[in-house]
Nucleic acid binder design. Structure first.
Length: 642
RNA sequence: GCCAAUGUAGCUCAGCUGGUAGAGCAGCUGAUUUGUAAUCAGCUGGUCGGGGGUUCGAGUCCCUCCAUUGGCUCCA
């Protein structure tokens, strides 16, 4: 007998070779029905896989992330089966589950698979699912595995097999489809009740752009039709929050063909919000000891040769221009200019740390396929600063930068984030990274220490550092689940050396400072894009271009409206008067759609009582109050950055 | 840059197998002076992304370029 330990600590005995399914059934038929896979001694098992030794067990259902993964992984196999039966001769790459469903990379040979084929594949999948085919796990020798895929002529699977060790190879089979796969899988295809294939795209084999491009088919499946419907509603909701849509509706920004791709034009509302943000950042950073500087948008080639950007970063810069026999570049970053400012004066250890900030406009030649609304653009303004400090000051400075992030995140109610600590790959020294192994080791160690000390949760990602040093990026999720990098905090030991930046030490020697590049609010473009989705276009009051709208019911109420506006303007509250001859219903609707946070409705009653009828966007009537009270209400929120 | 899809009025979209553009909203004009999410009527507005081709005839078919979108790759 073997001992099986349950999550609640209970232990039961079973015959060796019992399966998860049988154990679940022995407890409760509901559990057996609900479970998709099981975690056995920490490893996710098929419910049909025999358990041979003492083990802990935890059943995984649709409610668990790993249960979903199992479900979607099996769905990928089902899709492959459908594709193979519809388009015989298709070769298969990899087909994993992802956050929202699954995909399979396929090589359909002569037959092109397009979006038009998806309904056909979906239908076939449904048909196959209803056949209630079990997923069979089979351990197989490497030799037999190679024979199978050689026979099939699937070079992709053969390539994957090459890297696998004999004795650790498993096949999964359901219906007429066999795949090389680690598993695990759900017991049976009939669990898959709702299927939606979402799109097809190209994907390089093994993620390398030098390899052939395969066709990637994305899909998502559910154990209940209703869940698919809910998911579809959720996707529609997400679309409404898309910053590109909101940016247009709220007149924040626009693009124009004649201006160029990735070059946003900020409309007055957008410009207003940016300037409010800047005002806030300047104040916050002044308090944190930063000095602001200003630098030009272009510089001579030599600056970027010195900085090392030309060898490492040239393809992301706009092409050079020739002026009077000299080559100039548009700046893609502010740091080289700032280094020259550091270098403009003799510096002593007594001056350090020096923190130079600039909301500098940069231009980056992002590849055309990478542009994405405001999130990836070619002209951008960074919330940038460079800190020059001694090695001793480094940890403290780095910590202070992290604290600044957290402060900003709190202000903008960003609760979900992850710090990614990017380190270098020693094999790529001199190619992707500045060739200075000692300093890489030293600085990575320092950053790691700060992270451990401050107790901030982080993940370490190898081979993603900047060319000049390790960095921390902060990953956030917009309200619609879009993930991207906002803040960045980078260590740079290389540029101070290449620019020969020095300060005088206590011993009257010369030493190179360490530089920290940081941009907590990322770029204006990305940050506004993020905020649009984060707040669904309902910006906090302090950022709103218009905080309130006064809606007079008839012409005769306009003069009262103006006197109120003046009073509120005296308290630095911003608003408009809708003096159109329109019904009050229409005025309210228009103001609601513009997402102006507060409305004041003015009619005879208000003129008589001297009070205002307040209405809140998205919430409705707030009742009557004095102008004073209304002003206080808004003022308090603005003061608290709400 | 690569694979695929899309591109019709300021916005959202319709336009069947080719027969020379249509709606709602917005805008303008007029009437309406209105109590918590759309008052009514009339009008204006498009070289159908650009260029080329096939055809008696192209928004519709073909080629090409541009842009956008979904991915891949990339991302200081």
């Amino acid at each position: 007998m073997i001992k099986i330990t349950f999550p609640d600590g209970n232990i039961k005995e079973f015959d060796p070779g019992i399966t998860g399914m049988e154990i679940a059934k022995s407890i409760h038929h509901g559990l057996a029905k609900r479970s998709l896979s099981a975690k056995v001694n920490g490893e996710v098992y098929d419910l049909t896989r025999p358990i041979k030794t003492d083990a802990s067990i935890e059943f995984l259902s649709w409610e668990e992330k790993e249960g979903k993964s199992t479900f979607w992984h099996s769905s990928a196999h089902l899709m492959a089966e459908a594709i193979e039966s519809l388009y015989p001769g298709t070769k298969f790459g990899i087909g994993p589950p992802v956050d929202q469903g699954f995909y399979y990379d396929i090589d359909p040979g002569d037959h092109q698979i397009s979006a038009d084929d998806l309904p056909k594949i979906e239908k076939k999948m449904m048909e196959l699912a209803r056949q209630k085919n079990a997923y069979h796990r089979k351990e197989i020798s490497k030799k037999d595995a190679i024979a199978y895929f050689s026979d099939k002529g699937d070079q992709y699977k053969l390539e994957l097999l090459e890297e696998l060790e004999d004795g650790h190879i498993t096949f999964y089979e359901q219906g007429g489809f066999t795949d090389l796969c680690r598993g695990p899988h759900i017991p049976n295809t009939e669990l898959i009740k709702a299927i939606k294939l979402t799109n097809v795209s190209g994907a390089y084999w093994r993620g390398d752009e030098h390899n052939t491009q395969m066709t990637r088919v994305y899909g998502i499946t559910f154990p209940k039709q209703k869940e698919l419907e809910e998911w579809e509603v959720m996707m529609e909701e997400a679309q409404k929050r898309d910053h590109r849509k909101l940016g247009k509706e709220l007149e924040i920004f626009t693009f124009d063909d004649d201006v160029g791709p990735g070059l946003p034009l900020w409309l007055p509302n957008g410009a207003f919000i940016i300037e409010k943000l800047e005002e806030f950042a300047k104040k916050t950073e002044e308090e944190a000891g930063y000095d602001r500087v200003r630098t030009p948008h272009i510089a001579k080639e030599n600056l970027y040769i010195t900085s090392g950007h030309l060898p490492y970063y040239k393809e992301s810069m706009f092409p050079p221009m020739e002026l009077d026999g000299t080559t100039y570049y548009l700046k893609a970053m502010n740091c080289p200019h700032h280094h020259k400012i550091f270098d403009a004066l003799p510096r002593s250890y007594k001056d350090l740390p020096i923190r130079l900030a600039e909301y500098g406009t940069c231009y980056r030649y992002e590849k055309s396929g990478e542009l994405f609304g405001l999130m990836r653009v070619r002209s951008l303004q960074m919330n940038d600063a460079h800190i020059y400090c001694t090695k001793d000051q480094f940890e403290n400075e780095f910590k202070r930068v992290n604290e600044l992030y957290l402060k900003y995140f709190k202000t903008f109610e960003i609760e979900k984030y992850v710090m990614r600590f990017s380190t270098h790959d020693p094999e790529k020294l001199g190619k992707k990274y500045v060739d200075n192994p000692t300093l890489w080791a030293e600085t990575e160690e320092m950053v790691r220490n700060v992270l451990i000390e401050t107790g901030v949760p982080y993940v370490e990602v190898p081979d993603e550092a900047a060319f000049y040093g390790p960095k921390i990026d902060i990953q956030v999720w917009s309200a619609i689940g879009r993930e991207f990098t906002l803040a960045t905090n980078q260590v740079d030991f290389a540029q101070p050396l290449s620019f020969d930046l020095t300060y005088t030490t206590t011993e009257n020697d010369r030493a190179h400072p360490i530089v920290i590049h940081r941009a907590p609010l990322s770029t204006h473009e990305r940050f506004i894009g993020f905020l649009l989705e984060h707040y669904a276009g309902k910006f906090p009051l302090w950022l709103c271009p218009k905080q309130y709208a006064i809606l007079p019911i008839a012409d005769r109420h306009i003069s009262f409206a103006e006197s109120i506006k003046t009073k509120l303007a005296n308290r630095n509250l911003r608003g408009t008067i809708d003096d159109r001859v329109e019904s009050i219903g229409k005025k309210i609707r228009d103001t609601e759609l513009k997402k102006i946070p507060y409305m004041i409705i003015l009619g005879d009653k208000e003129v008589e009582s001297g009070q205002v009828a307040a209405r809140k966007q998205g919430e409705g009537d707030q009742g009557s109050m004095s102008i004073e009270e209304f002003g206080n209400l808004l003022q308090t929120k603005v003061d608290n950055l709400e």
